[in-house]
Each structure stands twice: as structure tokens, then as C-alpha cells.
Amino acid sequence: MNISIKRKDQGDHRFLVAVSGEIDVFTAPELQKGLLPLTEIRGGTLILDLNETRYMDSTALGVIVAALKSASRHQCSFSVTGMTPRIQRLFEITGLMELLKRVQTSRGVAND
């Protein structure tokens, strides 16, 4: 399984991370390595772009949970875009969607 992680620095501590390929038990550590340091930027903004992600298993969800928790600890805004309906369903069932909303809401209030 292959995965490609592209990082785009949009300036002002704002990063876009686009993942293409399949995130599974073998590729998840690579994503974690690419994602976690960016969640530790206090006051930063991180967007995870899943437009080109074909498949995610539960290990990938684990990486996103770790990123979410870290972002929340470091007051870094974290959001996910480009979910396929299948991934969106996975997020909704596991409660990750609610957690994402919580992190964004608390950050939104703090930010605006």
C-alpha cells in the first residue's frame, strides 16, 4: 500500500496536509509523523485534506484522534476536509465528527 503526504505551508502557522492513497496499519505511522508536529504549533491552523484518500481503516482514525487531542492541548485549530461518504460515515459512527466539532467550536470562540 502506498501513501503520499503533501504538506503545504500557507503562512501564518497555517498548514494543509493532503493525503493520497490508503491509510492503514502500515501507512498510519507515516501520517502520524507528518501530522503530530503540526498540531503542536500553539495558535496554528491545520487542515487535513482527505480528497485523495481512497481508504482508511481504524488505525488511521487512531492517528486522527491523537492529532485531535494534541491540537486541542496546544490550542491549534484542526479540521478535516474532503471526506468521502464512507469516511464521513466512519467519523459519524465513532463519534469523531462530534469531537472535531467540539475542538473547532472551542477554538472558534477563542479565536474570533
Binding site: L61, G62, V63, V65, A66, S70, I93, T94
Partner: peptide
């Protein structure tokens, strides 16, 4: 548990 683990 570790931060990247959870249980359904």
C-alpha cells in the same frame, strides 16, 4: 490507553 487508541 495511548492517545491514538480508542475502543468502540
Amino acid at each position: 490507553v495511548d492517545t491514538n487508541m480508542f475502543i468502540t
